[in-house]
Amino acid sequence: MKTKEKFLSFNLGVRDTAVISLQHITEVLQVSLPEICSVPEMPSSVLSIYNWRDEMLWLIDLEAMLGYPPISQRPNLLSRMMGIVLENKGKYLGLLVRELIDIEWLDTKQMKPAISELFYPQISPCLQGYFINDLEEIIFSLDATTIIQAPMWWIHN
């Protein structure tokens, strides 16, 4: 049984790194902030609706959703961000992150279980587990399906 899988790695907050399995990623796109139109009366982690392939795509501030300071509160707000388009059963969701790192092969047998006491309360439900890299750093493995199926997006959709 093959246990190596391709993951997209990206920064979370100032020091953390996270990965999402490529099997749930449809596209990666550059999003410039002027193209984002905000939506009133939405949770703070919901940044906007974005015109993607002539469809309306919800754009989520992944860091705000997971308990980090919102991207919009950063002093050095970037004019361009990276959008990771996730897909599950015909539903799409865009996650905004500051920068992508790489595509990595990771051995899923090396993934440690997510123990909720170790992590922020907001991040725990979205974790599949975590990896420890060669530098002894934790890499969060996010569960794309859980993120897409979070009730807060579909109440307003």
Results as ranks from 00 to 15, higher is better:
Ser21Glu: 11
Ile84Gln: 04
Trp154Ala: 07
Ser116Pro: 13
Asp61Leu: 08
Lys89Cys: 04
Arg80Leu: 15
Pro43Ala: 10
Gly67Ala: 09
Lys112Ser: 13
Leu29Ala: 10
Ile49Asp: 02
Cys37Leu: 05
Thr26Ile: 05
Lys89Phe: 02
Thr108Gly: 04
Met111Leu: 13
Ile101Leu: 12
Gln73Asp: 12
Met42Tyr: 13
Gln23Cys: 05
Thr108Asn: 12
Leu96Pro: 06
Pro69Trp: 09
Leu142Tyr: 03
Pro34Leu: 13
Leu8Asn: 05
Ile60Leu: 14
Ile139Ala: 00
Gly83Gln: 06
Leu96Trp: 05
Pro121Ala: 06
Tyr50Gly: 06
Ser9His: 05
Ile139Glu: 11
Asn157Ala: 11
Glu99Asp: 06
Leu47Pro: 01
Ile138Asp: 11
Glu35Leu: 07
Trp154Ser: 12
Val97Asn: 06
Asn51Ile: 10
Tyr92Trp: 15
Thr26Val: 14
Lys109Ala: 15
Gln149Ser: 15
Glu5Gly: 03
Gln110Cys: 03
Asp61Ala: 02
Leu127Ser: 03
Leu118Ile: 07
Trp52Thr: 11
Cys126Glu: 03
Leu118Met: 13
Tyr130Phe: 15
Gln110Pro: 00
Leu66Cys: 07
Ile20Gln: 08
Gly90Pro: 04
Val39Cys: 05
Leu47Trp: 08
Val46Gly: 03
Ser141Thr: 10
Met111Lys: 15
Thr3Gly: 00
Gln23Ser: 09
His24Phe: 15
Glu87Pro: 03
Leu86Met: 06
Met56Lys: 09
Asp143Tyr: 08
Ser124Asp: 01
Arg15Asp: 14
Ile103Glu: 09
Thr26Phe: 02
Asp16Arg: 09
Ile36Tyr: 01
Val28Ser: 05
Val39Arg: 02
